[in-house]
């Protein structure tokens, strides 16, 4: 899938950071906020405007787990698999979600770009374990059945 990029939006981001190459992480974060991932075509554009090589930007983008080079779904579901959530059975929730969406460890996002399912190491909400987040919203004390309900609700929203 080729993302159509509005370079004016990228210019606005660059403007905000005064075209400073040292702000590359913030620039990538804002770009990712816009597209939910870092589209490939952005790299040469940023390279030219910031005067740093595409290889260098790729280096930064691949160093941090938080940057994605693959398109993400509209709903990014992060299941906590930290110690507390793990012992309170987070894996069956993950398995249920993956099964009902046809996803796996290597395929995180549905083809219709609606859902992305990932694990995270700790969300810092161990008292609510097992916990998951959809975009920024936290869902506490989850079970596989509750996860199925949640999916149905999210699908209904569209």
């Amino acid at each position: 899938m080729q993302e159509i990029i509005d370079f004016k939006e990228i210019d606005a981001i660059l403007e905000r950071y005064r075209y400073e190459s040292s702000s590359i992480i913030a620039i990538l974060q804002d770009t990712q906020a816009k597209y939910r991932y870092l589209p490939k075509d952005v790299f040469p554009y940023l390279s030219e405007k910031l005067g740093i090589s595409t290889a260098k930007i790729y280096s930064v983008a691949t160093f941090y787990e938080n940057f994605s080079l693959e398109p993400k779904g509209k709903y990014i579901i992060k299941i906590c698999d930290g110690t507390a959530c793990h012992v309170r059975k987070s894996i069956p929730i993950l398995e249920r979600l993956r099964k009902s969406l046809g996803l796996s460890e290597s395929k995180e996002t549905t083809d219709d770009l609606m859902f992305t399912v990932q694990t995270v190491s700790c969300l810092g909400a161990c008292g609510l374990a097992p916990v998951l987040t959809v975009n920024e919203k936290v869902y506490a004390a989850m079970t596989p059945d509750k996860a199925t309900e949640l999916l149905a609700k999210l699908k209904e929203e569209n």
Binding site: K40, I52, S53, T54, A55, K56, Y58, S59, T62, F63
Partner: peptide, 20 residues
């Protein structure tokens, strides 16, 4: 001043790579 290659990824996956 070419910068065709750089480090990519991290930890055990680290490698020298071109962009993408």
């Amino acid at each position: 001043n070419v910068g065709a290659i750089d480090f990519a990824f991290r930890g055990s996956k680290m490698c020298v790579s071109t962009a993408f």
